[in-house]
Nucleic acid binder design. Structure first.
Lengths: 136, 136
DNA sequence: CGCAATCGGAACGAAATGATCCGATTTAGA
DNA sequence: TCTAAATCGGATCATTTCGTTCCGATTGCG
């Protein structure tokens, strides 16, 4: 019930990126220095974030990346899912993975879907722009 | 952003226990057979749940355990915390663990507290009695 | 045309989780 | 009172995932 430090780093990096003026050219090195995240780890994260469509990348010398969408259009859930994969409380909720010992007799599963939606909603309700604001 | 299978098992076991009439004498063996959870794992879980005050245990031949409180007074958050420890999204939220690279300059932390509360609230709002109900 | 700087993926090591086993404690019955 | 069965409790070991690090592919500039 805690998000991995990878996801934690990703959130901090994205917030730092959102604090820059839109269109600013960013690099993994820059964000690593600014956030204190180890450079190799930052590179790994940018890769995942780009693969998820949250960052638009450009290779080459003058390359780098920028936010693919406005900060207000990116939610905390998007970032977490980009790094950790789908948000699912239990494997029961995952699409077609019947490894429950009780199979269909499991009475808890339908409730889990509700809980899952509530948790995901809590994360989806927080936009990156609000995270970039300086104060609470 | 997913709870461990240990916590998953614990929820299923507690739900199975809540479905029994109040005061019924339960054992780890019984719940293991009913839920399909491996017996040693079930024993480990009952230990943690008892240590958290969710189960009242009795040793000896006629021993076993029962719910320490009414099912309506036990929330999903209680179970998860009993197995996984405190619910904290990031280490920042944890009490006095300043290992953030940015230390106090981290602008994201105050927002995390809000998110943390929202997620915890989603889990605390689900009681064990509702989980024990047969239908969604 | 060569060089520098960047992203992208692959391999390694470490930590935590999950499953298993054995010992300590307690009560029921003889 | 003593034996014995049944339970909880803690300690040990394999497995998986996470986290870090390193190296190759690609692109733009001099």
């Amino acid at each position: 019930m805690r998000l991995t430090s990878l996801a934690d780093y990703a959130v901090v990096m994205m917030a730092a990126a959102a604090r820059r003026p839109v269109g600013t050219r960013l690099s993994a090195t820059l964000l690593a220095e600014e956030t204190g995240v180890p450079l190799p780890t930052a590179q790994k994260l940018t890769g995942r974030l780009a693969a998820a469509g949250l960052l638009a990348t450009a290779r080459g010398t003058g390359g780098g990346f920028r936010l693919a969408r406005r900060a207000g259009e990116i939610s905390l859930a998007d970032i977490v899912e980009a790094v950790e994969g789908p948000i699912v409380m239990t494997s029961c909720v995952d699409v077609e993975r019947h490894d429950c010992a009780l199979e269909s007799a499991c009475q808890v599963r339908p409730h889990m879907s509700v809980v899952n939606g509530a948790v995901r909603g809590a994360l989806a309700g927080v936009s990156l722009s609000s995270l970039a604001e300086v104060k609470a």
